[in-house]
Design a protein around this nucleic acid. Structure first.
Length: 112
DNA sequence: ATTCTGACGTGGG
DNA sequence: CCCCACGCCAGAA
């Protein structure tokens, strides 16, 4: 295990905390981990999270609320269906009422 | 070593 | 709102 695994582990920690029916962004997680400039690495961590079913990767989207990573799931619409199954409305790969369902680690985890 | 690519984000126009 | 250029950094070729 290398040091980068620590970063991955942190990403998974936060991802697991995303409540049912809520979503967050790669940048929000990265910023929360103190690596705001490594938002891409959060996406990369999600890529590696396929071996860990506990990670709700479908609850992580980009800052626009767009399902940019849907092509990394098995089915064509698997990511969207997982979200809709949680009550999230998705249209044209865009999460509707994104600001309402958005889950900000800083706010929701009551960080002082 | 070098180059390119990305599940991203920000800033300017 | 959209489009574009740039910064970012790990991994693949």
């Amino acid at each position: 295990m290398s040091k980068s695994d620590n970063f991955f582990e942190k990403v998974y920690e936060v991802a697991k905390l995303i409540p049912y029916g809520r979503v967050t962004s790669y940048g929000a997680i990265a910023k929360y981990l103190g690596a705001a400039r490594s938002a891409r690495m959060v996406g990369w961590a999600m890529n590696a999270s396929h071996s860990i079913p506990e990670i709700p990767a479908h609850r992580v989207v980009n800052r626009k609320g767009l399902l940019t990573g849907k092509f990394h799931f098995d089915g064509t619409n698997l990511m969207q269906q997982l979200l809709e199954n949680e009550g999230i409305v998705v249209k044209e790969n865009q999460i509707q009422h994104f600001e309402t369902v958005f889950w900000d680690p800083f706010t929701e985890l009551n960080i002082k």
